[in-house]
């Protein structure tokens, strides 16, 4: 059996080291090795976006990245967003707009929204809807999520 890989990386601004099997996805490493359980497993095949994280500034599905690929990279997850005493404006906007019900899709939507606003602080509704097309929600019907992202854009830009 191939031996474990030793990975040195940066997660939410902090240096992190871990051992993982090459076949473990980044999602499995986050949840099972590092106990960062914010990223969720929905489909495990790239279709639902519940596992979205930001890798070297780019939105990716952590279920479609290997944990071993993280060597020397920089990762942002939902755990890194809030300050100890204050939620991130996107998190606030999701609460204010009631943009979640069961909440399983929420960390993924928030990371996807962050990646969007990082590169396009004033997106149109059309741009928001296309950007979020890879994130599925079975509760809200999406409108409230889109409105939350529009609100967050107003407060952050």
């Amino acid at each position: 059996m191939p031996k474990k890989v030793h990975v040195q990386t940066t997660i939410n601004g902090e240096a992190v080291e871990y051992l993982c099997e090459p076949r473990q996805s980044l999602l499995e490493v986050l949840r099972d090795v590092l106990h960062l359980t914010g990223a969720k497993e929905g489909c495990n095949n790239g279709n639902c976006g519940a596992c979205s994280v930001i890798l070297d500034g780019r939105l990716v599905n952590s279920c479609l990245v290997l944990g071993a690929e993280l060597e020397g990279k920089s990762l942002e997850t939902i755990e890194g967003l809030a300050e100890p005493e204050q939620l991130h404006p996107i998190q606030d906007a999701f609460l204010e707009n009631a943009a979640l019900q069961c909440g399983i899709c929420t960390p993924g939507f928030i990371m996807a929204a962050k990646a969007l606003l990082d590169q396009n602080p004033n997106p149109t509704e059309h741009e928001i809807r296309y950007w979020l097309a890879g994130n599925l929600c079975r509760c809200t019907g999406y409108d409230k999520i889109v409105r939350a992202v529009q609100d967050a854009a107003q407060t952050t830009s």
């Binding site: 780019r58 969007l116 890879g134």
Partner: peptide, 9 residues
């Protein structure tokens, strides 16, 4: 091809 997260990879 896919959505934003797929196109990033």
């Amino acid at each position: 091809i896919g959505g934003t997260a797929i196109q990033g990879r």
